[in-house]
């Protein structure tokens, strides 16, 4: 159904859409624009124009090392979550066994479990057992919350996957493992990439688990921003957030390009 924007209903819909997007996007504009002001405190609309807060943010080694920690943890978590999530999704869609629905529900349950509960539980668990050390504690925690995102996106993609493609690969001489890597994976790759990007963003953005489980000397970027905001809201914090917004925008564009052109060839 198409509704013309010239009709009264269409106009109302357009107005609502503009308002909704404005409501959602305006705070982001504030975050990006406010540090451009030359006031020494955050003001919007910014007065004067300076890049010094952005420059300060880019030269602040605390933020840079926190960014490095966040990137490392998000990347590791996303890759592990991708591996576990895709393997689980493949097993859940390909084989039928008793308890399959239950297993699927368990895999997806971290989505509805309050993060705080998980954080407290894991802190106690790691303290008691000493099972993992250093940043691996946080990686493990993030894998738990990120895997459902990969699974959520991979399950429908693998369910829709035409099994005769896999059979064709085997018929032509590929072992089941080869068939998976040469045919199944490339065909469902857009879905898996989407899930992994989601997992990466979730981990990168996560603050509760990071507060509890990050190494004392190596906070993640969200934790760093969180403490900076608590200490005093200086414009460089907003500049860091502004940079993150721009980086995310870049990532989205990159993902879009990968999704459009990357899906064509292996």
């Amino acid at each position: 159904m198409t509704i013309s924007f010239r009709s009264p209903l269409g106009f109302v819909l357009l107005l609502l859409a503009v308002l909704a997007f404005g409501y959602l996007l305006l705070p982001i504009l504030v975050v990006v624009a406010a540090p451009l002001g030359d006031t020494g405190y955050l003001a919007f609309p910014p007065r004067g124009l300076t890049f010094k807060w952005y420059a300060a943010a880019l030269h602040d080694t605390r933020y840079l090392s926190a960014l490095a920690v966040s990137l490392r943890i998000a990347l590791t978590s996303a890759l592990i979550a991708c591996t576990i999530g895709v393997a689980a999704a493949y097993g859940l869609t390909r084989f039928s066994f008793p308890g399959r629905r239950l297993l699927e529900a368990i895999f997806l349950s971290p989505l509805i479990l309050p993060t705080l509960v998980l954080a407290v539980g894991l802190t106690l668990f790691f303290t008691r057992t000493g099972l993992l050390v250093g940043s691996w504690k946080l990686v493990a925690a993030h894998v738990i919350v990120c895997t459902p995102y990969v699974l959520r996106v991979s399950l429908p993609v693998l369910r829709r996957f035409d099994r005769s493609l896999e059979e064709a690969a085997r018929n032509l001489g590929a072992s089941p493992v080869m068939a998976f890597f040469l045919v199944v994976l490339p065909v469902v790759r857009p879905g898996i990439v989407a899930g992994t990007v989601l997992a990466f963003i979730t981990s990168f953005d996560e603050v509760v688990l990071a507060l509890f489980l990050a190494e004392p000397g190596a906070p993640t970027l969200p934790v760093m921003i969180y403490s900076a905001v608590q200490l005093g809201f200086e414009p460089s914090v907003a500049a860091v957030s502004g940079l993150l917004v721009l980086a995310t925008l870049g990532l989205m564009i990159l993902y879009h390009l990968l999704g459009t052109f990357g899906g064509r060839r292996n």
Binding site: D162, L165, E167, L172, A179
Partner: peptide
């Protein structure tokens, strides 16, 4: 299946969508 020397033409053709015609044939 992959050790049997059979060539199967599927009802749905089951061509690999990410490979070109030549790459499909070369598989």
């Amino acid at each position: 299946a992959h050790k049997r020397d059979t060539g199967l033409v599927f009802q749905s053709y089951a061509l690999f969508p990410h490979l070109s015609a030549a790459e499909n044939i070369a598989f």
